[in-house]
């Protein structure tokens, strides 16, 4: 990473910390401790399943909300407040700015996920008193959640580079919801014929496949996640993220900052 991207990324991280984004961890901690105590009392034999399901879903939702609501302002807020003028009048290329913003928010989300993951494991330990070998699957699920964050951050950044924050939020959230049902969309596309099939298949493959990145239920039921899926999801998330970031850079390179 070149030094300018690094400095923009660290400044973005600092902004998130000072804007008290990490305060969501308090809400998460309260949720997990409440859930652990409650689950211990009302569910017999399935405490682990409930805590893992609830914990990982919360990690995912908290992160997605942060990725969308901070991501949509990463570029548009800088244009609106004109803070961008004093950055781009320096030897900083526009694509470097985009990359720095992406890494900064991704770093914030990874740190956030790290602390939330500790919360999940502590709650799990509270309800089951020990860890099992199958619990390593939770780490894989968390890794996939982080991959989802990378994709949604890149998408929020793309929308932020040409649209208003409100529209960007709508677009990013809609894509997240559609992406969650990407496998169903692909199945639907395979049932159609002719031009419709081409169009439906194209659309199904264009939206991010978040369903392949969701193994929460599988992990909660102690099923193993194949190495092949880990490799596939890693490659998919990286290629998708790089493609979206490249599109963002292309759009932003041509934009007049009026």
């Amino acid at each position: 990473m070149n030094s300018r991207i690094w400095h923009i990324a660290t400044n973005t991280f600092r902004e998130a910390v000072r804007d008290r984004v990490l305060y969501n961890l308090i809400a998460f901690a309260l949720l997990m401790s409440g859930a652990a105590v409650l689950v211990g009392q009302i569910s017999i034999g399935i405490e682990r399943l409930v805590v893992i399901n609830l914990g990982l879903t919360a990690v995912s939702l908290f992160g997605i909300v942060i990725a969308i609501f901070i991501g949509i302002g990463l570029v548009s807020k800088e244009i609106e407040k004109r803070t961008l003028y004093t950055v781009l009048s320096r030897p900083v290329r526009r694509w470097e700015f985009v990359a720095g913003k992406f890494f900064g928010l991704s770093g914030t989300l990874i740190v956030n996920t790290f602390f939330m993951a500790i919360g999940v494991f502590v709650a799990l330990l509270y309800v089951s008193h020990s860890f099992k070998h199958a619990d390593t699957g939770i780490l894989i699920a968390l890794y996939f959640i982080v991959l989802q964050f990378l994709i949604i951050t890149a998408l929020a950044l793309l929308f932020s580079s040409f649209s208003s924050p409100l529209l960007s939020a709508v677009f990013a959230f809609a894509l997240f919801v559609i992406g969650t049902f990407a496998e169903d969309l692909r199945g639907f596309a395979s049932l159609t014929h002719g031009v419709t099939r081409w169009l439906a298949t194209g659309a199904a493959y264009l939206v991010p496949n978040f369903s392949a990145l969701n193994v929460i239920s599988q992990v909660a039921h102690e099923s193993s996640v194949s190495r092949q899926l880990i490799a596939y999801n890693t490659a998919y998330a990286l290629v998708y993220t790089i493609a979206v970031l490249s599109a963002t850079a292309l759009v932003f390179e041509r934009r007049n900052l009026k």
Partner: peptide, 28 residues
Amino acid sequence: IGFLPEQPYFYDYLTARELLRYYGQLSG
């Protein structure tokens, strides 16, 4: 080159010292 925009607005979560360090780093 140096540039002061009209009615400048800066990252208000930074101190003056942090702001200048950041810009200095970006300017190399």
